[in-house]
Computed example of a mutant assay.
Amino acid sequence: MTIAVRPASVFEDVRTLVGPKSPEANVCWCLSYRIPSKLNNELRGPARGEYVADLCGKAIPPGVLAYDGDEPVGWAAVAPRSDTAFARSRKIPHVDDLPVWSLWCIRVRPGHRKKGVSHALIAGAVEFARDHGAPAIEAYPLDSGDAKVDMTMAYAGIRKNFERAGFTHAADTTSVLAGHPRVVMRLDLR
């Protein structure tokens, strides 16, 4: 499998990865950390998809997609931390005042897992952030050690995958996901 990672500017492909089977469903659409809580609660059903479609048309799309040929097989949400809920988080600390980017969601479609897609997504998100002038990129993965992680809650990523990509531990957090603590991992892009 040869994986190519590209900016998430094709809405239909983003919908394949993070959209619901039914347009009326109120799934995350990877908006929970991207937009203020009040707006996240107000956007219902098709309005969530419309919001994401608008993001896909922006100069800086909402993340990156992994492709196997023409088939979208993975998604990673990445944006300036200042544009996310992480800018205001009380559980995930700021390491310093550097205008870092955040990488907070990685999703690989069933049937394509355990084939290196998440590693390609992390690398693609790093390049995307670098190409847009980010001085550093952070992720907030689970620090699960060797414990198995529920795939539904593994969207934040796993610490060891970020370590393999060159990220280093920058801070502990008070955030816990699926029973595992989350940590701040950072990669300097300068």
Rank of each mutant, 00 (worst) to 15 (best):
F162A: 07
R34E: 05
A156I: 03
D97E: 15
P110E: 07
A134V: 00
I3H: 01
D96A: 09
R81M: 09
A123K: 05
K38M: 01
N40E: 15
L187T: 07
A136F: 00
G179L: 12
A59V: 03
L103M: 15
A134D: 00
D131R: 13
M185K: 03
S82V: 14
R109V: 08
F162R: 02
I122G: 03
P20M: 10
T152V: 06
A147W: 08
A59S: 08
V5F: 08
A136K: 08
T152H: 15
K58S: 06
I35K: 03
V52N: 00
A165M: 07
D70V: 03
M1R: 06
H94D: 11
D83Q: 13
L187D: 11
E12K: 15
G157Y: 02
N161S: 09
P135H: 09
R164F: 12
L39F: 02
P46T: 09
T152Q: 14
V100M: 02
D172P: 02
H94S: 01
H112N: 06
P181C: 06
R6L: 06
K160G: 01
C56T: 09
C105Y: 06
D172T: 04
G145R: 08
D83K: 09
M153G: 11
E163G: 05
R88T: 09
E138T: 05
R113M: 14
S22C: 13
S32V: 12
A87C: 08
P93Y: 09
A66L: 07
T84F: 14
P23W: 10
A79S: 13
A147Q: 14
A76K: 08
H169I: 04
A178F: 00
R81L: 09
A170T: 08
M153R: 00
T168P: 00
M185T: 03
S89A: 05
G74A: 12
H112V: 08
I92S: 04
M151W: 15
Y33G: 02
A53G: 05
G166D: 12
S89K: 12
E138P: 09
R130Y: 05
K114I: 12
L142R: 12
E12M: 03
V18R: 07
I92T: 06
K115Y: 15
Y140M: 00
P62K: 10
M151T: 12
I122K: 04
D146N: 14
P110H: 08
K115V: 13
A77V: 12
R107T: 03
P7I: 11
N40I: 07
M151N: 14
T152K: 15
V73N: 01
N40R: 10
V117I: 09
A154H: 11
D143E: 13
R15K: 14
A170Y: 07
L103F: 11
D96C: 10
I35C: 03
H94Y: 11
V149M: 11
A125R: 06
R164D: 13
H112E: 04
A53M: 04
H132P: 00
D70F: 05
G45V: 02
H119I: 02
S89F: 13
A156R: 12
P7R: 10
W104C: 05
P61K: 05
G57P: 05
D97C: 12
R34D: 02
C56K: 11
A47Q: 14
G116F: 14
I3K: 08
L17M: 15
F11L: 08
A47T: 08
T2V: 11
